[in-house]
Amino acid sequence: MSSGRIFNKFKNGISPPSFIRGFAWYSFVIVSWVPAAIFFKNNIGAVGEVGGESMYPYLNPTFNEGFSKDLCWISKRNPAKNLQRGMIVTFWSPSHPEVLSIKRVIALPGDKVITKAPYPYPTAVIPVNHVWVEGDNKDGRKTLDSNHYGPISMNLITGRVTHVLRPWRGPVRWWEFEDSRRVIKGRIQDAPHFD
């Protein structure tokens, strides 16, 4: 068999039974790995393309100059655990449930945030199990973030951006992010709860 070299890995040296020889057998072998791929994508990590300019200048710095989009590695292992200010997370946008947003965590439960323009109140205190996310873009019209929809539930977070792959910039050094001056740090014990 001419394609033997490619499929030897799956075949492990034994020939498949006569009634599902050939194409059907190899299709089955490939399809049998699809659940594993889905599991990996949802629970271990995935490559994601950054679509917009909300994280300018950190991600998509050349957004206005061409069609190139940044690629990043999104870790999906316990993304909402031990979140810190400065981390970049992906989450289902509260205002568009089928859109994955990518923003930076600005404030944690208990913190007080001095909000920006579209938010109806001058300050916001972050409740339990919520975070305040914002895009890096200084222009508030270029980023749809917590200033529009308020603090987001940590249960919406699906992943954490750990590496920028294209152009290669290596691991995301979130700890070098200077905390926003619009955040007054608080204690998690003081975070509001709806009870």
Binding site: W92, S93, P94, P97, I152, S153, N155, L156, D195
Partner: peptide
């Protein structure tokens, strides 16, 4: 009534 509108991404 207690926690406000639910983001549909959580469903």
């Amino acid at each position: 009534r207690h926690f406000g509108p639910l983001p549909m991404g959580l469903i």
